[in-house]
Design a protein around this nucleic acid. Sequence first.
DNA 1: CATGAATGAGTATTCATTCAT
DNA 2: CATGAATGAATACTCATTCAT
Lengths: 206, 206, 206, 206
Amino acid sequence: MSVSINSLASGRRAVNRKNNRDAILDAARDAFAEIGYSGTTVRDIIRRTDLASGTFYNYFDSKESVFNALSDEIGTELRQLLRDVRQRASSFDSFIEAMFYTYFSYYANNRENYMLTRSNRGRDGINQVMQGPQVRAGLAELNDDLHKAIAEGFIPSLDVDFLTASLGGVAFSILDEMMEREPLDPEAAAQFATRLFMTGVRGKNG
Amino acid sequence: MSVSINSLASGRRAVNRKNNRDAILDAARDAFAEIGYSGTTVRDIIRRTDLASGTFYNYFDSKESVFNALSDEIGTELRQLLRDVRQRASSFDSFIEAMFYTYFSYYANNRENYMLTRSNRGRDGINQVMQGPQVRAGLAELNDDLHKAIAEGFIPSLDVDFLTASLGGVAFSILDEMMEREPLDPEAAAQFATRLFMTGVRGKNG
Amino acid sequence: MSVSINSLASGRRAVNRKNNRDAILDAARDAFAEIGYSGTTVRDIIRRTDLASGTFYNYFDSKESVFNALSDEIGTELRQLLRDVRQRASSFDSFIEAMFYTYFSYYANNRENYMLTRSNRGRDGINQVMQGPQVRAGLAELNDDLHKAIAEGFIPSLDVDFLTASLGGVAFSILDEMMEREPLDPEAAAQFATRLFMTGVRGKNG
Amino acid sequence: MSVSINSLASGRRAVNRKNNRDAILDAARDAFAEIGYSGTTVRDIIRRTDLASGTFYNYFDSKESVFNALSDEIGTELRQLLRDVRQRASSFDSFIEAMFYTYFSYYANNRENYMLTRSNRGRDGINQVMQGPQVRAGLAELNDDLHKAIAEGFIPSLDVDFLTASLGGVAFSILDEMMEREPLDPEAAAQFATRLFMTGVRGKNG
DNA sequence: CATGAATGAGTATTCATTCAT
DNA sequence: CATGAATGAATACTCATTCAT
């Protein structure tokens, strides 16, 4: 029976389908977003594909490794987007706002990835968001940017590590709040975050 | 065998003046902090006590219920501390600073609880920090305070839900950064957080 | 707290209440009838009394032993009732009918005991109904009666063990059917059983 | 280690030409017959096979589901046998006798199934014998037959539900008695049961 | 005798992973 | 490479029973 199903599917596969690795990644994204990391079983993932459970291990070593691959994928995408922003920014203010906007927009347009991130933020013993080579690298770049901003006099000489952390913290917390609202308004969220970050609660334009 | 163990144990128990429930809570705090929620088994908890596995279930219904009891304990302590702060605050600025300071100090002095919180922040599908009746209530009180602060003209009329989220986000992220430093300096962290929150990166005293 | 409850209860107990053994038996009857033997836990039983779990073991050795005590109680009651019937019977026909009637009436008037018997008829490895010293003795008496009936020419010389078994089998199966009907009519059931047993399906008065 | 075990096992399996499902069913039949339903653990079952514990769950959902499968198997076999009897019967008397004979013979030739049925007759809250879709259906067919027998004037107009119950009751009780005798004599048992059922204890041929 | 907290052996079930086909 | 049945270690939780008070 499963043979016939596979036969049918493989027709489509030949032309249309992503390769098995991508199919597994997609299925895993769904599963993790829906059930959370520890609730998800490899069977949950494989059930969302046409594949057999053994095939999973032809592409990934373990449940953890798919998860890391997904995190990396998201991290890489976001990092690239933020890198583009950085190159285009004409002022520090617009750089910050563009960064927030990019970040919020990304998740607004990829709710699946938001769920994945959120459901698993800080899964056991790990601050997920702060983790993963790509995210780590992205934060390092941000850290550099802030150092440069200080060197170039755009902002006062603050504790850069605290500052980096704060930027991340504000981004996460406002993202969560934004994602609960209807309709999603990444622009408003970015404006709020930017204003708060730049001028604080007493900021002129408050 | 069980006799000798019990004799020894009851001796120690008598000395420690700890009842079993507390022993289990302490063991669970250790285990969760070290291994994380989902990695921790009931056996891991009970192994850190003198008790038998069945005894666990005389005090708690499940692994989840111990975890919730711990979360509640921390939430209640923090909430009470913050409530005291609130009552003593003479200005909005000092209120915010005292709140950050209290929060950072609490975890600086209870690293175990920090590990517990951090290791399990946002365990599957749940933003743990934002959760639990006590924490929820604490955040609601903060939300009220911010509403009042606006009503009384201390701060401009901002989106209070975004603001509450931001306060939490800044607190978490700076807490994480602070806890990695040596020596722990909750005062410096509180000053940074307060300044950022009040005046932003361009704040006068930056 | 439990002390005060017990204090209140012990007042009633002194004058009014059955002793603890009876209280446990009653509770067990309820529990077994409702949940069945293997589903019932000692806690289920003890929860239906004012007593503590340890007290159970002052009166019974195990769950099984309470069950046996209950079975024995029912067996003894039934055996005594049937013995009375036997003494009063004026003819074989009336003896059989009176026996069926007594048996059906007993359970009609003690549905709890019926449930107990039925829920546990033949529990693991044991044909419960055929078991227990009292029941065994009762069946032995019946066996004797049938032997005598043959010796005295009331009935033909049949295989008495088969006959005893059949009497029991008809009694059980008609009891089950009767207990499902509304209203309970032990007399009709006894008439049916007697006629079938005496004259078969082709019996004159069918 | 598991390798060598597997090698040995697959050899034997190959020889036996039994698939795992059947191996589990056989093991379960043994275990239930020997230890009874509630006494039997899944481990008891799996220990009687070459399989690993997890394999059990590839074929059955639970202990209950194997038990039901076995009951169904027996019920189906018996029902088919009785259906054949019914078709061949030339008179009501011979129909009844053939039915009893078939029933007694079946268990005489399948003592394992008898033990299974007997050990679990009426397990908790359930009159096992009267239960299970196949048995239920078989009894319904019997009920129909008795209705027809009345309609066609073979037997008087008796309470058919009582009659069905009685037939079952007599069959069970005589089966139990027969199975304790040596040698097994299903024919004698069937003759006795038939005579009793047809003409009662006072029957001509008694 | 009464208590009820403590005990810990015991059970069903899950699931990541392997491997013969 | 794909398959999916087999594996068996691991875990949460139950419950009859004990025993110090």
